[in-house]
């Protein structure tokens, strides 16, 4: 098969998996939309009034402009992580949906690409809800930057989804996801600069923070939406790290699932 035909086929079959998830989600769309918009609103209300009053300026910008991009990244990270772990594991292990799909022409790589791209879609969707809230409430002063931030957030969501699949590929029971949230999601929530600058932490926490993809993502999204200066080479470095981690994580997850399912 010529290379381009393979790529098109990969798209078609992983797209079928992606569409299956969209179909199921459509029934839950309104509650999902509501919570995705309400959650950041409640957050902003509380933090805006609470912390915003105390912290006037953070990192050279008003607190709202600082925290809203952080929340965009957080929303993308949380939704993509949840979907690629808890939800994917349910389809894999509880409902045997994967077994049914693998008996069709869909390959494991395509199945995983479908699941990963769906988790990333949910992550990007959640981030968009925060963007909408930010546009209403305030916190996104630079509109063209938001447009640039969208693909960046999507890349971040791909990375978080791929990392989630690594956990799912290793999961024998649901217990592993407790560790995943404690040692992966929560640190990215608190140490990656969502609510405070990373530089406030002692050096060893900063070292950990820079290993996390979230820190790199926020470092790009925040200057974009705030309209601050951003060195394109530095931005490329951050995005390169996120992309490399996504590829490495997906490859590892593919290897693990392959061993697990076929050996």
């Amino acid at each position: 098969m010529p290379a381009h035909a393979t790529v098109i086929a990969v798209n078609r079959y992983s797209h079928a998996v992606w569409r299956r998830n969209v179909l199921v989600w459509r029934r839950l769309m309104w509650p999902s939309l509501t919570t995705n918009v309400l959650d950041p609103l409640i957050f902003l209300f509380a933090f805006g009034y609470g912390l915003g009053a105390v912290l006037d300026q953070v990192g050279g910008m008003d607190y709202l402009s600082f925290v809203v991009p952080g929340m965009m990244c957080y929303a993308a990270m949380f939704a993509a992580s949840f979907e690629s772990t808890i939800s994917t594991y349910a389809r894999f292990s509880l409902q045997h949906t994967w077994d049914a799909i693998l008996a069709t022409p869909v390959t494991l790589t395509e199945l995983m690409l479908g699941e990963m791209s769906w988790a990333a879609t949910k992550g990007a969707f959640s981030a968009c809800c925060v963007i909408v809230v930010g546009l209403i409430w305030g916190g996104v002063p630079y509109l063209p930057g938001v447009l640039l931030a969208l693909p960046v957030l999507a890349l971040g969501a791909v990375c978080f989804a791929s990392c989630g699949l690594v956990a799912t590929a290793h999961a024998k029971t649901w217990d592993i996801f407790a560790y995943f949230f404690t040692f992966w999601v929560t640190p990215m929530f608190v140490f990656s600069g969502t609510f405070f600058e990373v530089t406030r932490f002692p050096w060893f926490v900063q070292a950990i923070a820079w290993a996390l993809p979230m820190t790199h993502l926020i470092s790009v999204v925040r200057p974009l939406t705030a309209g601050a200066t951003l060195d394109p080479w530095i931005a490329l470095g951050h995005l390169g790290y996120v992309a490399a981690l996504a590829v490495a994580a997906f490859t590892l997850a593919r290897y693990r699932f392959g061993r697990r399912l076929f050996d």
Binding site: R20, V24, I101
Partner: peptide, 23 residues
């Protein structure tokens, strides 16, 4: 041997979605 129908989908959707997996 074991039931791996898609519990999130209707009877008809189970067939439609499966058809897509076959391209």
């Amino acid at each position: 041997q074991e039931d791996n129908l898609d519990p999130d989908l209707s009877v008809r959707q189970n067939l439609e979605v499966y058809g897509r997996y076959f391209g």
